[in-house]
């Protein structure tokens, strides 16, 4: 019986070794807004589908920028609050496939970004937003200012979910504590 297994196993191994497995590039960071001023295109990526209360990490991709040292990003809230986003240059690291996202590459959104990095300048900054509603995004560079409006939503999980899990866990713990206290020695 042993001799009849080996050819099958060997054939399967050969079949396995001869195959190829290319990878598709995946999705990247969600775009919050795209702005255009003259020759310059600016795309602002968020860390979530929509901007949210709490800390947002904003990634800025700018193409056609003449002075890459002085872009300024700020947010203006519904109540007039102005928040400045301290932008820092983003380090782009190439992947083992040279940082280029081709159809056979094995990397995700980062490779797409890395490919685009050849003619774009990247910045990243964090900003803490406290109120929901429509905020204005203002980007200033090369002496030009462009603005757009973005929606800011409440961050975090659904309150119903938190209430359910919190009550289930808390309720059981309280029940356990009460039952144990009622036992003669205070423990089970």
């Amino acid at each position: 019986m042993k001799h009849r297994i080996w050819p099958v196993a060997a054939a399967a191994l050969l079949l396995a070794a001869g195959a190829a497995s290319p990878a598709l590039a995946g999705g990247g960071l969600p775009v919050i807004t795209s702005l255009r001023a003259g020759d310059t295109d600016v795309t602002i990526y968020g860390d979530s589908l929509l901007m949210h209360t709490g800390t947002n990490t904003l990634t800025v991709e700018a193409t056609g920028l003449h002075d890459s040292h002085g872009p300024e990003l700020s947010l203006i809230g519904p109540d007039g609050t102005t928040l400045s986003v301290p932008l820092e240059p983003l380090h782009i690291v190439a992947g083992p496939d040279g940082g280029h996202g081709d159809s056979h590459g094995s990397s995700g959104h980062g490779d797409d970004h890395a490919t685009a990095a050849a003619d774009a300048v990247w910045f990243r900054g964090k900003v803490a937003v406290r109120t929901t509603g429509y905020w204005k995004v203002q980007f200033h560079m090369d002496g030009k200012t462009v603005t757009d409006e973005v929606k800011v939503v409440e961050n975090g999980p659904s309150r119903a979910y938190l209430a359910f899990t919190g009550l289930a866990m808390g309720g059981t713990i309280v029940y356990g504590a009460i039952v144990r206290r009622r036992q003669p020695n205070g423990r089970r």
Binding site: S21, A23, D97, S106, G110, D111
Partner: peptide, 22 residues
């Protein structure tokens, strides 16, 4: 606080293939 971005792959696609089929 260190902002880095780029390719997500640790090794090349070919290396992954060889390991997967092995």
């Amino acid at each position: 606080g260190h902002q880095v971005m780029g390719g997500a792959a640790v090794v090349s696609a070919q290396t992954i293939q060889i390991l997967q089929f092995g």
